[in-house]
Design a protein around this nucleic acid. Structure first.
Lengths: 182, 182
DNA sequence: AACAATACGGAGAGTGTCTCCGTTTAGCAA
DNA sequence: TTGCTAAACGGAGACACTCTCCGTATTGTT
């Protein structure tokens, strides 16, 4: 990749992260191009779809997911606390911007989604938490990580839609946790 | 209201119901106007916002909700079955069109929403189901009808986003039910 | 039949998406 | 350095959608 191309690409991602957080996932792409000081053509050449741009933005986010997972696994205390804590963390992680939870959760089941690799990072993280609880014999029955992600994603979507912080839906997360625990 | 006005209004609602089901909640309003054989101005005079149009469409839907509620309350059998059955019914009812579950669920918490009266119909229905279970002493703790609606709405959103029927998310509804039951 | 009052409809302004293609630039080879 | 070519740029413009404004048409009343 030519040096100028890389420069522009990086700049677009940086600006897009900002604009998405500011105006939500529906922000104008031309606006992003303008703010990044490039033509619309340049933006669309690098990122043919809105999702491709989102995928690029989420690249750095992967590290944060893994970090949060380690922290959750290191938790010492009640299983219920661990699970609910992880749910809150998860919900926060997918609340990148307005519309983020819905976006990510809907991509979760769809193998054709352009952000599928990011979803896998999330399911893998949840799987590790579930495995730990399973080892403790704390879970009710076979629990599927993807489904748990979708469920918690659904709750996060509720909070996002209502312009509320994740903490506002803690009671819902508790219900989900109680439904999973023995 | 003048006769021609009523005629046009009715026709718009009828066409909109069809188009929303066909193309989802984001369907073009100009397209609806065209199909209804009226000018864009006429559509916007009757329904200043997309939500106002949705509200009109949902008018007849209220009857179906009440009908379904009676049926659920008349159910004789396990409490768990009753609850899960109601969840499935609920999820189906809000899956009016692509984007419906998210739309309705996000309106649920927001008192300024133009479809708030329709949401109240839904929460009232859920409240009746919850009251019945509470009377049986089947519920775990104080359960808020609005929160339950949001939670089930979140699950329905998952199915909707993944282009799946409500039946595909039954396991998630079971988790939610188990989280609520004693 | 005449006349308000009411409603109609579509042109057009504003905004966003996405493509096409003439122009510019980076990077390499002589 | 210079010259060359492949790669990349950028913005004009076609297309789509939303929503308003206002001249025109229809209704129903007197």
């Amino acid at each position: 990749m030519r040096a100028d191309a890389k420069r522009n690409r990086d700049r677009i991602v940086e600006v897009a992260r900002e604009v998405f957080r500011e105006h939500g996932y529906d922000a104008s792409l031309d606006e992003i191009a303008k703010r990044a000081g490039v033509g619309a053509g340049t933006l669309y050449r690098h990122f043919p779809t809105r999702d491709a741009l989102l995928d690029a933005i989420m690249q750095s986010w992967v590290d944060r997911v893994n970090e949060a997972t380690e922290k959750a696994l290191a938790f010492e205390g009640e299983d219920r606390e661990l699970l609910i804590g992880w749910f809150e963390t998860y919900a926060s992680l997918i609340s990148l911007h307005k519309g983020g939870p819905a976006k990510i959760t809907s991509a979760m089941g769809n193998p054709d989604s352009p952000i599928v690799s990011k979803c896998q990072v999330l399911t893998a993280a949840s799987q590790r938490v579930i495995d730990r609880l399973e080892a403790d014999g704390a879970l009710r029955a076979d629990v599927d990580a993807v489904q748990v992600c979708q469920l918690v994603g659904g709750v996060a979507t509720v909070a996002d839609n209502a312009d509320q912080p994740v903490s506002a839906v803690r009671p819902l997360l508790e219900v989900v946790a109680d439904g999973m625990l023995r």
